[in-house]
Simulated scan of single mutants.
Amino acid sequence: MTANQVQGPAIHVQGLEKSYKELRVLRGVDFDVAHGSIFALLGSNGAGKTTVVKILSTLLKADTGTAAVNGFDVATQAAKVRESISLTGQFAAVDEILTGRENLVLVAKLRHLKNPGTIADDLLARFSLTEAGARKASTYSGGMRRRLDIAMSLIGDPPVIFLDEPTTGLDPQARIEVWQTVKELAGRGTTVLLTTQYLDEAEHLADRIAILHEGRIIVNGTLAELKQMLPPAQVEYVEKQPTLEEVFLSLVGADGKDGERRAMTATSARMDEE
């Protein structure tokens, strides 16, 4: 068995529980993630999202329950799990003293990969950072820094990537850049588990959405399935006010004469009312 095995779901979680002293953070979490899909774990601050990610990435041990990533048990096959994944935290972990290309080369060397320069150049092109590759990462915008961070996470082609609130603190344009990157990852077959507290982010990106609340998954489904849980939308009729464009066209007409007559008629009617 290798780190590239694809038997069963990409991520399988059953009955995860975790407490910090008297605080119960996870109270029995269950979900599966299909290969090549984007799965959003949605919840407010303190719901337990990061704790789930830490357990799945072998940084933390669960009190009870089981979890497997890419077919490997996180408790008994931690080394194989780490070979199968990459983790991007809430804040970009780039070295701002180095250039974008140097950051990528460094990670490739740390992973003992051949041709680190070629790997770096390929990723710079893939993430539209070629022109910025020779600049220090400290000069990058928030969106560029996050794209570089994700590119670093993909060195070695991990089949599963965890993105823990990847757009926290980014401006709207940078968020859109990250969203496009995440969609491209899934399009290439990478399985993405995304944690977020932004409703629009989950709605825009995810194939399936699980809502984590007070340590439990309270709902898990596609966006369409979640919407069906609410009553059908009520249709209401409201009076539509004319726009300035409509007023203008109504008054000037095709040759302007009809408009003059309408304007004079409307003015006379107002005078009569007064």
Results as ranks from 00 to 15, higher is better:
Glu177Lys: 12
Trp179Phe: 13
Pro232Lys: 15
Ala125Cys: 04
Gln241Ser: 06
Glu201Tyr: 10
Trp179Cys: 02
Tyr198Asp: 12
Thr139Gly: 04
Thr167Phe: 15
Pro231Lys: 06
Glu201Val: 11
Glu239Ser: 05
Ala233Pro: 05
Ile119Lys: 03
Ile155Val: 13
Gln197Tyr: 11
Asp122Asn: 11
Arg216Tyr: 04
Gly215Pro: 01
Ala174Trp: 02
Val182Arg: 07
Ile150Thr: 01
Leu199Ala: 05
Ile155His: 10
Leu154Thr: 05
Pro158Met: 01
Thr139Cys: 00
Thr130Tyr: 02
Gly117Ile: 07
Leu205Val: 13
Leu223Arg: 15
Thr190Ala: 01
Phe127Ala: 00
Val178Asn: 04
Ile217Lys: 07
His213Gly: 03
Asp121Ile: 05
Asp121Trp: 10
Asn220Lys: 10
Val192His: 08
Ile218His: 03
Gly169Glu: 05
Asp200Asn: 00
Leu148Val: 00
Gln241Cys: 03
Ala137Asp: 07
Ser128Pro: 01
Asp171Gln: 06
Leu212Glu: 08
Pro242Thr: 04
Phe127Thr: 00
Leu154Asp: 02
Gly133Asp: 11
Asn220Gly: 12
Ala120Cys: 03
Lys136Leu: 06
Gly169Pro: 05
Glu131His: 08
Phe162Ser: 03
Arg126Asn: 00
Tyr237His: 12
Ala224Thr: 13
Gly143Asn: 14
Gln197Ser: 15
Leu123Ile: 01
Lys227Asp: 02
Asp200Tyr: 06
Val182Gln: 02
Glu225Cys: 06
Gly215His: 03
Thr168Tyr: 04
Ala202Gln: 14
Asp121Met: 07
Glu239Gln: 08
Tyr140Gln: 05
Thr168Gln: 14
Ala134Gln: 12
Val238Ile: 07
Glu165Val: 11
Leu148His: 00
Val160Ile: 14
Asp164Leu: 13
Asp207Trp: 09
Ala120Tyr: 08
Thr181His: 05
Ile161Thr: 10
Leu226Ala: 04
Glu239Thr: 06
Leu154Pro: 01
Pro231Ser: 08
Arg146Thr: 02
Leu154Lys: 03
Ser141Asn: 13
Gly142Pro: 12
Pro159Cys: 05
Asp200Met: 03
His213Trp: 04
Leu199Asn: 09
Gln241Thr: 04
Thr118Arg: 10
Lys183Asn: 10
Thr191Asn: 04
Ala233Val: 14
Pro158Tyr: 01
Leu170Arg: 05
Gln234Ala: 14
Thr181Ile: 13
Leu193Val: 15
Arg216Asn: 11
Pro166Cys: 14
Val235Ala: 11
Gly169Arg: 11
Ala137Ile: 06
Ile176Phe: 07
Tyr198Phe: 15
Pro172Val: 07
Val178Trp: 11
Tyr237Arg: 13
Met229Tyr: 07
Gly221Lys: 08
Gln197Leu: 12
Trp179Val: 10
Ala151Glu: 01
Arg135Pro: 04
Gly221Gln: 09
Lys240Gln: 03
